[in-house]
Amino acid sequence: MDARMTTDPMIESPQTEPQASSELDVKPETPEETKPAKQVRMPDPKLDPNSPNVFEVRDLNLYYEKFHALKNVTIDIPKNHVTAFIGPSGCGKSTLLRCFNRMNDLIDGVRIDGSITMEGQDIHSKDLDVVNLRTEVGMVFQAPNPFPMSIFDNVAYGLRCQGIRDMKKLRVVVEDSLRKAALWEEAKDHLHRNALKLSGGQQQRLCIARAIALEPKVILMDEPTSALDPIATAHIEDLIEELKKLYTIIIVTHSMNQAARISDKTAFFLLGDLVEVGDTSEVFHVPRDKRTEDYISGKFG
């Protein structure tokens, strides 16, 4: 499969390049339709170095042991935009999200085929350092999970793992990250207090600060507000608005409102299939697929 991917685009992409866009994969369910579509949008880093996409996912299939959790998913994640993944529970949103920083590696029995490239580089290739990948692709989890250490140490954790010990530099980065995560005002006076003493919403912002401290290119967020009250949620949503100027954000959410409010692009999943992906306004107002419409209007889910 990999071999085909590296040879095919050489031949095919020149004439198809102008078409390269993510809005085309509307109906990936029938194999006859996906096959040619896939070949049309083969990425080729050499021909398109300034691709507007951070990630390009091609024909991704993921299995948990026997269970087929992601089926032929092909999607592009545009740079400096917010992409929302929506869909009913168990449709594979988190699974796909974890593919981007290869957290699925930690789960036994996971098998992946297809390709994911980040800025043209295959993230599953042998010479990609997964530790580097994870510093470039940060992640915020559903439940806030600060380390039981001080606020300062939490934010400095990633940098210290890289061997940065210089306190002056760490202090600058910690302050900067906490400011970006809108936590600085609340936290500046007790940076050395245990992070577990913060409220849930503050903890989640701390987790975002901790991810930002590494200056990632992408931040993955898996239902970051599902454990929070509306006020804390609003806080985080404002924060995402701010952050998207600097970072590419992929967010999984169960809230249609949230997706509509904060995302630029929306992808709708159903039972491991990517049903529809497009500009958020289009997906919400003129969905192309009946199932998307049903889900968004609350007919199932």
Binding site: V131, R134, T135, N145, F147, Y157, G158, C161, R210, L214
Partner: peptide, 27 residues
Amino acid sequence: VPDGLRMASLSLGSSHTQMIFKVILPN
């Protein structure tokens, strides 16, 4: 030790041994 801490550590670009020595063993 909650799994969330392991995930958090790895997602911040720590190596496995860093995760063990900085997060898991202290906890």
